[in-house]
Simulated scan of single mutants.
Amino acid sequence: MEAFFVSTGIVALAEMGDKTQLLSLVLAARFRKPWPIVLGILVATLVNHALAGALGAWVTTQLGPDVLRWVLGASFIAMAGWMLIPDKLDDEDTKDNPRLGVFVTTVIVFFLAEMGDKTQIATVMLAARYSEYIWVVAGTTLGMMLANAPVVWLGERIVKRVPLKVVHTVSAIVFAALGVLALAGVG
């Protein structure tokens, strides 16, 4: 269960102010249909994080424990630095095709926006760190939903009240601590 709780917390924090959270806000403002948007985010996240988790699990079979420990430690510390760089929504993320419907448009746009995103990379690293691949994917997906579903329903009211600099700093500290623990061989 540690993998589930750590994955949920890390991704929920990492997603605050992330481009996919901003995309959730744009989709909500554009379509004003929260249920298909939230379900689209769920499906896109499950598929994306399942693939990322599978990659992370595969990495553990290819690297020895000492190499894996150093790779994970350095990766978590690099992620800590990346967390301190705020995301901006790219213009291309808003150019979707509404003819596909709200749900399908959300799935496609959100899946593509999540490619190479902080939370996807975090999912790869967490799956490499913990042997419970299913719990990591469940946790990272829940973390994404905890960060994005309220944005879809409550929109700008939440985004304006969340001190993103503090959230990014706390996220960076968590990633740095995980990196140090991995380098020290703890856990």
Rank of each mutant, 00 (worst) to 15 (best):
T169I: 15
G143K: 14
G139C: 03
A149Y: 05
M144A: 15
G143L: 15
I134V: 11
G139N: 04
L164I: 13
V162Q: 06
V167P: 07
W153T: 01
W153Y: 08
V170H: 11
V152M: 01
L142T: 10
I173P: 01
R157G: 11
K165S: 14
N148W: 00
T140A: 07
V159L: 15
I134R: 03
V151N: 06
P163E: 02
V167L: 15
T169V: 13
L154S: 01
S171L: 05
V136Y: 08
L146M: 10
A149Q: 06
V159D: 11
W135F: 10
P150E: 04
V174T: 02
V170T: 11
L154M: 12
L164P: 00
G155D: 05
V137I: 15
A138D: 03
I134T: 05
E156C: 00
T140G: 04
W135P: 00
M144V: 12
A149L: 07
G143D: 15
A147N: 04
G139I: 06
I173C: 04
V167Y: 10
W153A: 00
L154A: 07
P163W: 01
A147G: 03
K160A: 07
I158M: 11
H168A: 11
A149F: 01
P150T: 10
L142E: 06
L142R: 05
L154D: 09
T140R: 02
S171A: 12
G143Q: 11
V170I: 14
L164H: 14
V166Q: 09
W135T: 00
L146F: 07
V152F: 08
G155N: 05
W135R: 04
K165E: 10
N148E: 09
L164Q: 10
L146T: 13
A149G: 04
P150L: 08
V167H: 10
L146E: 12
W135I: 00
V151H: 03
K160H: 08
E156N: 12
V174K: 01
T169N: 02
T140I: 06
H168K: 13
V136P: 06
V136C: 07
V162W: 09
G139R: 02
V159F: 13
G143N: 15
L146Q: 11
V159R: 15
P163I: 02
R161M: 00
V137H: 14
R161L: 05
N148G: 03
V159W: 08
V137C: 11
